[in-house]
Design a protein around this nucleic acid. Structure first.
Lengths: 204, 204, 204, 204
DNA sequence: CATGAATGAGTATTCATTCAT
DNA sequence: AATGAATGAATACTCATTCAT
């Protein structure tokens, strides 16, 4: 038991080290230029051990993506009692962006997109996580806001996409084409404008 | 002289053949999986000749992208005399999408995005062509529409991005993650909804 | 003591399991394609235990071969009282072939032959078992038949080889080059012909 | 033309060098232990060039075997006018053995046998060359000897196999299990004995 | 004494690029 | 100017063997 526990612990530590090294390497080099030997070396692990944990380069990549991909956070936490619709929408936007700009989500998306022709399934999964699920979360929040009379009744599935699309246009799209893109200083102001537009359409 | 002319002509023809073969190959395989030997073979040219024309795989890639990037069409042609604002906006949307979905623009964007870390300048140029210039064109149209009283006065630079962002969200974003994505059958209806939203915001 | 006995028994059982698994694996895959890890797994034993019993892959191979080599059966049992020379020779042939085609003797020979350059001593031993000893047995039977007047006096050491050679030509040689070779349906008829030839040479 | 001729010549020389180096290497190491890089180095050629000439290790091996395998010589040359049956049979035996013991035929056969489980087709081809075709040649000679009254009428297809089987038993079989086996000094005497046996069965 | 995770050397194959003709 | 054969470095993956627990 003590043995097994220890082994499990060591194994988990190695697995984590591999995932970290792999994330670094993939971010630096993309998928095809990343090298298994280099990843193993950077994780202080032999190549064989690496392959014990992950069957192939693709499997490793998938694991990296799945771990690093921003999981859909629970936006319902944003429905604080005293907040106005404007407050909530602002917070949603900021949460969306922080989710996207932390954890290297933009860079990972670039890599996934690069692999679309070779790994369509992976790309589809990523799209599901990055777009569909996050949209569902947003939609749930809006439905609640409608129920509470904070937004006028409308198709929240659509307006959620609309909101997401506006954010992407201003912040994600440029980041896709520029590895050095950072959220600009006037981000808050831009978010305010977007929220205004949204409220003009759907506010009560 | 006639000889030189002839040689030049032959050389130009080969260059064109190489560019075409390379485009095909990059679209099929992405950058890293594309092969210089295969491109040369498909262009009916020796590898040495290929390297006479393009110094490296990267140089060839850059040339291919620059040539293939869809040039910003002149949207001003859409300002037909008898059209309503709704008519014009609809046509704009369709023109935008046809530009995006023909000539493999989605696939090209995928490849460029994939190479962002390795070729940042190229990516920036592409973004300029694919986003900024097209936005400028859209903005010009909208400015005219404002002048003509078809839209209420507003910041057209912003509303043009808003419109582009909405289109991308519904049609370009999914295409980025799915090589087989086609414009859905209800595209026209969706465009109508987007136009409605736009007009609710900016219509007179 | 009882403990030691028990341990010894367990150890012997594991050793036997390893040998069995190894034989299976070598027969399926040949020497170089066989894998120590797979053998250990199939023997329900850890690789370390496997190496406790056998120092190396080669050592394991040697042990497997030595155990699996068909021991020279006692052909003297075939000298039944009422049988004619023809009867006895027929039975000898059939016994020879059954020894060769059961217990994977052909496959074993293939593997040993394959490893001749790497394990010359083992191969020599195998040849001794597979050819010399069996020939000695045959020779002994023939000497007895000569004594009893069932064959005319001659060099039995040679005629025994002659008989073995004829059988090998028809049945063993093809099996060496075809893993799926089975004894043909007309085997008995062919044996009769061979016996006829033999009797024409050495019969009384 | 001059260019092409030169290139062809260089290419052929390299191909030959590769085949020679590969033969050496396969004989030394067998199939699985042989290394493409080492073969390339020994042939003074890059690995890529090696792969230009032969698609894979298996393809190279097949080519080596096919080139080195002793082609069925034309035994009809042995039917000299003044020779007795005994003379002819002796010469046939010697020719058979010289074919088998030159050109490393025994070692090559060992390698092919080793690869039977992994490359059954190759093994079948080898068997055809090494056994069937040579037997056909022998049979043809015997048929002629029968026609000329030098042997009594009989099934030459069978007697040819019989003769081949006897030779194999004495000379090829031991060579298969002993890489250092050489034709013994009393080979001629043994051949004489075999010929005697054969003539006792089929002589006139 | 048994375990199985870890090792690291080893291998076939590919590909952008160069160079002799 | 054009060829295409040649290069050699690079890479994902395997496997017999060892060692800490």
């Amino acid at each position: 038991m003590g043995l097994d526990t220890h082994r499990r612990a060591v194994s988990d530590r190695k697995r984590a080290a591999i995932l970290k090294a792999a994330l670094d390497n993939f971010l630096r080099n993309g998928f095809s230029r990343a090298g298994m030997a280099e990843i193993a070396r950077e994780a202080d692990v032999s190549t064989a051990t690496l392959y014990k944990h992950f069957d192939s380069k693709e499997a490793l990549f998938t694991a990296v993506i799945k771990q690093a991909a921003p999981s859909a956070s629970d936006y319902s936490a944003f429905l604080a009692p005293g907040d106005t619709a404007r407050d909530i929408l602002r917070k949603l936007c900021k949460a969306y962006l922080s989710l996207q700009f932390e954890h290297n989500a933009n860079a990972l998306m670039r890599i996934v997109i690069a692999e679309v022709p070779g790994a369509p399934k992976l790309a589809a999964e990523m799209y599901d996580v990055l777009a569909n699920r996050r949209n569902d979360s947003l939609m749930a929040v809006m439905d609640t806001m409608i129920e509470r009379g904070m937004l006028k009744p409308h198709d929240a599935a659509f307006s959620a996409r609309l909101g997401g699309g506006m954010l992407k246009e201003l912040f994600v799209w440029p980041a896709l084409f520029d590895a050095d893109f950072k959220l600009p200083p006037d981000t808050d102001r831009k978010i305010d404008v977007l929220v205004d537009v949204f409220l003009e359409l759907y506010g009560t």
